[in-house]
Design a protein around this nucleic acid. Sequence first.
DNA 1: TGATCGAATGTTTACGTAAACATATGGAAG
DNA 2: CTTCCATATGTTTACGTAAACATTCGATCA
Lengths: 330, 330
Amino acid sequence: MADVAALAGVSSQTVSRVVNNRSNVEEETRQRVLSAMRMLGYRPNTAARALVTGQFRALGLISFGLASFGNARTVDAVTRAAQRAGYTVNMIAIESQTERAVHAAFDQLTMQAVDGIVLIEAQILDTPALRLPPGVPVVMADGDVSHRHPMVDTDQTQGARLVTRHLLDLGHETVWHVAGPEDSYAAKRRAESWHATLKEAGAAVPGVLFGDWSAASGYEAGRVLARRPGVTAVFAANDQMALGVMRAMIEAGRRIPEDVSIAGFDDLEESAYLSPPLTTVRQDFDVVAERIVALMIDQIEAGPAPADTAYVAPELIVRQSTAPPPSRRP
Amino acid sequence: MADVAALAGVSSQTVSRVVNNRSNVEEETRQRVLSAMRMLGYRPNTAARALVTGQFRALGLISFGLASFGNARTVDAVTRAAQRAGYTVNMIAIESQTERAVHAAFDQLTMQAVDGIVLIEAQILDTPALRLPPGVPVVMADGDVSHRHPMVDTDQTQGARLVTRHLLDLGHETVWHVAGPEDSYAAKRRAESWHATLKEAGAAVPGVLFGDWSAASGYEAGRVLARRPGVTAVFAANDQMALGVMRAMIEAGRRIPEDVSIAGFDDLEESAYLSPPLTTVRQDFDVVAERIVALMIDQIEAGPAPADTAYVAPELIVRQSTAPPPSRRP
DNA sequence: TGATCGAATGTTTACGTAAACATATGGAAG
DNA sequence: CTTCCATATGTTTACGTAAACATTCGATCA
């Protein structure tokens, strides 16, 4: 910076002003500085800048990895939204769902230079309330409403209701459910809403099978369900598990949707191309991400925000994997 | 840090020594400092530290987003490998494949505090050689061999050969190919190897159809292929496109694998649960990521490395989507 | 005309850390 | 007992930037 200042014949402070697009710099001076910068290939030093301003223009992102496509979509969308806002994203994937791992990730991120932290798909931890170090703004996605941080999420309750209703309306006596892992809030809310919707409709509530979001776990659950003759409709808590259920049913000789209807949750782009195309609940990951980043930046610039929860409406996408049950068909 | 030093009754330099685990600190002093740190909730300031050391313990990662599952797997694996090495990952997703976008991403990252940059699935850019700012170590994945940066990649040539051979060996007269985007090196190498393998075997080489890695583009290609009666075997350049091809074939009334065999590339976990389960080429994303990070850290610590390319061997996974052609079946 | 103000630019300083150098202390070697 | 050296600790400084404050200069207004 000193070199640039010398070459342009100004003080380093003027260079700083040009770099930061401040006013009160004569156009001609600005041009002179800019060309000096170009000539010397000058790049501002983020560390020094952050040291002075206390701002890094970077967001920390803690997730449980990208193996779950829903998570991957969220991470992707958050990254892009952050970029549009001029922030980079510092990502940490934690392996286990323990509070210790989350805290270690937090430590690493706050040590790393971030202005705020986005926590994706927070799990239900052992301790009643996850205590995070103060001072760093936090926004959660798919977390627990009772936490003291703002949260943005798809309206899981509404989504699960839509898909369960859809299956009941087709004439199925009841709907089986393959849930996500027991320590996932998103999974819990979907399961609770499925349960409530069945009760409301006066339908029997079958036992829940738990998966871990993976197609493999859906397949295992599907094998169990395929053995039970009365199963005519299955709602899997995400599209990957729905895929596994479908496979297990087909292997067992059950046709979809003639013998059994299957629905998922997420609406991955691929779900429209499965055989048969999957009925599912579309989450608007981009809108969720936009809101997360907006809330984050609010907090960074204007201080702590109330721990409100913003819900983004999902949409039922009916495709060919759901149909009336055999009893209602000619 | 000064507060910690005062509380512990030592100089700030001694605190620094404790924080950095340096030797030459008496055990008793160390404990005193550590407890002072705990008491005050002291966290080292990364910006100040980086300003002095010039190191950030952070890697930049440029990719084209996580919509392509292969990319998502790579990003996930790189993140985890980097974490194990004590580095965080600063991610940038670029929208378009222009050189300008790549350079903008580079600028943002070098301005952001990173010690090195990993470039995933570099595309073929307009200019003969992508000129990156000097001074920052770079490792490429899925890039162009001719670049002057070290590269790690799955052996695309070998993978495409394996799958093409497999189809020919089953008795298919030739194999159609749905390639990835024309500006992708990985897609190009897979296509070239498919072409070479057909020629070697004396088989006719049908025209290539291009997709963009998405299931939708595979579906479009599949519709075209389904109209051609002679098509008995299709090799799609990734599993997502293979999924789309499968869907188009099934819609057209072609059975898989009885009428037409379909194979993919990547071996996503889901591919084993498609109907029918997909024959594909398994990429070892974890090994690729390990090597990328190792090369990166070598460069950071020991200076520029030769622009070698390391290939990781793929593996053919035969499942039920491929079979002998109708002509060879009873 | 002189006072006043605002725009453009310069000077000084602080940010929090680790490197480089300086000093003190105690024990081993002669 | 002195010398020397290793170990433990303290002091000074530099890293590159932006904030705070200071200065200069020309224009505006009473």
